[in-house]
């Protein structure tokens, strides 16, 4: 029994991801020795922090059996709202940050309400949300005195420091990411609320009959994902030093890749935050390393897309013994 337990622990998906991560770092280190400097390695998170933050909480949505393709557009809406609140409404920057997170929560709540209470597919609602929130971001730009192309800049130093300075030698963005990992891990894996989320995804009817308010639980996951998107928007604004409406537009593919690569099923009921966090870092390091190795950024979708398709295919095929047998037969004949 001990042996099987050990085996189970050894062959966990998370360990496999750690293995990929180490291989990645070694390969990129060989390609470009600069890559291995801790300053560079830790600093690389600047490039993919938003993927990490958002995918943590989109995992919640996936576990309830939902789908969230709107998170990217909330990033842009948050960023530009933050800028307008600060520059044109004259709010204190930290007050603006709080309002921006609230905006993200409201965006998530609207979609979550529609998904949970009207029975429309999550894909359709969040597709509508994607249009709506990216459109609203443009509408907010019109409220400001700056044009959409230049964005809003000139934030106070204390706000810029949020993403650019270090605490105890660790970049603040890494700290934000670690805090959110711990928070989401406790929320999903250690609380009653987290168990309810899983139950909603495994068997919604059973959850209803056992007295769980599934509608509220499902709605809350969208609120969390909306809030995480706005946190990502704030961190990104702080890092870039300017608020723009078009931030986060290209995030949908990497976010979903991170969640699925992390071992969360898109059918719900299965998954975990640690896997997602690792997968997000795997993807981020891959993007960063490939760019350092000299690949143009526009090509990055090819390896990411391949990674997504291949992992999911490998996972489903390895679970399908019949297919393996047929493939084995085909090779046996040849």
């Amino acid at each position: 029994m001990n042996k099987s337990l050990l085996k189970e622990k050894l062959f966990r998906w998370e360990n496999f991801l750690v293995l990929i991560l180490i291989t990645e770092i070694i390969i990129f280190g060989l390609l470009n020795p600069k890559f291995l400097q801790s300053r560079v390695l830790l600093g690389s998170i600047n490039d993919f922090i938003s993927i990490c933050i958002i995918s943590l909480f989109v995992t919640f949505v996936f576990i309830t059996g939902g789908m969230d393709i709107q998170a990217g557009s909330i990033v842009g809406l948050t960023s530009i709202s933050l800028g307008v609140l600060w520059q044109d409404a004259g709010l204190n920057i930290w007050a603006a940050v709080v309002v921006a997170i609230l905006i993200g929560a409201i965006c998530g709540a609207i979609s979550g309400f529609l998904v949970a209470f009207t029975g429309v597919q999550a894909m359709v609602v969040t597709l509508g949300g994607q249009f709506l929130y990216s459109g609203l971001a443009l509408a907010v730009v019109n409220l400001s005195s700056s044009s959409a192309f230049e964005g809003i800049s000139g934030f106070p130093n204390s706000f810029i420091a949020l993403a650019t300075s270090k605490t105890l030698g660790i970049p603040n963005q890494v700290i934000v990411f670690l805090i959110l990992i711990i928070l989401s891990y406790i929320l999903l894996h250690k609380t009653k609320y987290g168990r309810y989320i899983f139950l909603c995804g495994i068997n919604r009817n059973a959850a209803i009959y056992s007295g769980i308010k599934t509608k509220l639980i499902i709605m809350s996951t969208y609120i969390l994902s909306g809030m995480s998107a706005s946190i990502a928007g704030i961190v990104l604004t702080s890092y870039l030093g300017s608020a723009r409406a078009d931030l986060g537009k290209e995030l949908t593919l990497p976010i979903i890749t991170a969640v699925v690569l992390g071992g969360t099923s898109n059918l719900g009921g299965k998954g975990g935050v640690l896997g997602t966090a690792l997968a997000a870092v795997v993807i981020g390091i891959m993007r960063f390393g490939l760019v350092m190795a000299g690949l143009p950024t526009q090509y990055l979708d090819i390896p990411i897309g391949t990674l997504l398709v291949v992992t999911v295919a490998a996972r489903t095929v390895s679970g399908n013994t019949k297919l393996i047998k047929t493939i084995g037969k085909m090779f046996g004949k040849a």
Partner: peptide, 26 residues
């Protein structure tokens, strides 16, 4: 991908979307 490999369609086509978009750049 969707039928033989049984990859969920949203994931399969999302991945292919990225790959093909990259192929345009190439």
């Amino acid at each position: 991908g969707v039928t033989v490999l049984r990859v969920p369609s949203i994931i399969m086509t999302l991945g292919v979307n990225g790959i093909v978009r990259g192929a345009i750049y190439v």
